[in-house]
Amino acid sequence: MIKRIDTLLKLWAEDLHSESPEGTGSGNMIAMLMETKGELIRGTRGSRVLLDESADIELIVNKHLPPQLSVLVHEHYCNHDSFLSQKMMHCGCSAPTYYRRLHEAHQCIANLLLGRLAA
């Protein structure tokens, strides 16, 4: 695991994929934009990650990661209701494979984020 990417993914999941305390539903970016009448506010809900960085991670996870890695990232960071064994079963892999894929996802995300920053 890449510690910096792990931290970013935890904050991404908190920012965009957790229940919002205001009751706006899923806590996703569309709901936040509707709530703020289209005004992009950095660091909503006291987050340490900027919303544009969360948006980049959202795009990478949903559009640029291979499907099996995308599912694993969503399960690992967004599914707080399941045990690890249930997450591994949902992803269809053993513990070593689960953590190998998680590391692979971290590497892909890091490379894509670096490419976005360089562009």
Rank of each mutant, 00 (worst) to 15 (best):
M1H: 09
M1Y: 03
M1I: 07
M1V: 05
I2Q: 12
I2H: 13
K3T: 07
R4G: 03
D6P: 02
T7E: 12
T7W: 03
L8K: 04
L9F: 04
L9D: 02
K10M: 11
L11S: 06
L11T: 05
W12P: 01
A13Y: 06
A13P: 07
A13F: 05
E14S: 13
E14Q: 14
H17G: 08
S18F: 09
E19M: 10
S20K: 14
S20C: 15
S20A: 15
S20F: 08
S20I: 08
P21M: 11
E22G: 03
E22I: 10
T24A: 11
T24P: 00
S26N: 13
N28Q: 11
N28A: 12
M29L: 14
M29S: 09
M29I: 11
I30W: 11
I30C: 05
I30G: 03
A31E: 15
M32F: 14
M32P: 00
M32T: 07
L33I: 09
E35K: 15
G38C: 10
I41G: 05
I41N: 07
R42A: 09
G43S: 04
G43L: 01
G43D: 03
T44S: 09
T44D: 08
T44V: 14
T44W: 14
R45P: 09
G46T: 06
G46M: 09
S47F: 01
S47E: 01
S47K: 02
S47N: 04
R48C: 02
R48D: 04
V49S: 02
L51I: 07
D52S: 11
S54V: 01
D56Q: 09
D56P: 01
E58T: 09
L59F: 08
V61F: 05
N62R: 13
H64A: 03
L65W: 06
L69T: 06
S70D: 06
V71E: 13
L72I: 10
V73D: 05
V73P: 04
V73I: 14
H74K: 15
E75G: 07
E75S: 12
H76F: 13
H76G: 06
Y77R: 06
H80A: 08
D81T: 13
D81G: 14
S82A: 15
F83P: 00
L84S: 13
S85I: 14
S85N: 13
S85D: 14
Q86W: 05
M88I: 08
M89V: 10
H90E: 13
H90M: 12
C91D: 06
C91N: 10
G92Y: 02
S94R: 04
S94C: 13
P96H: 13
P96R: 14
T97W: 11
T97S: 15
Y99W: 13
R100I: 09
R100E: 15
R100K: 15
R101S: 08
R101L: 12
L102M: 08
L102G: 03
H103R: 15
H103C: 05
H103M: 07
A105N: 06
A105C: 09
H106Y: 04
H106R: 02
H106E: 05
H106A: 04
Q107Y: 04
C108D: 05
C108I: 01
I109P: 01
I109L: 03
A110R: 07
A110H: 07
L112N: 00
L112H: 00
L113N: 00
L113P: 00
L114E: 04
L114R: 01
R116Q: 01
R116S: 00
R116Y: 03
R116E: 02
R116N: 00
L117S: 03
A118W: 04
A118E: 08
A119F: 02
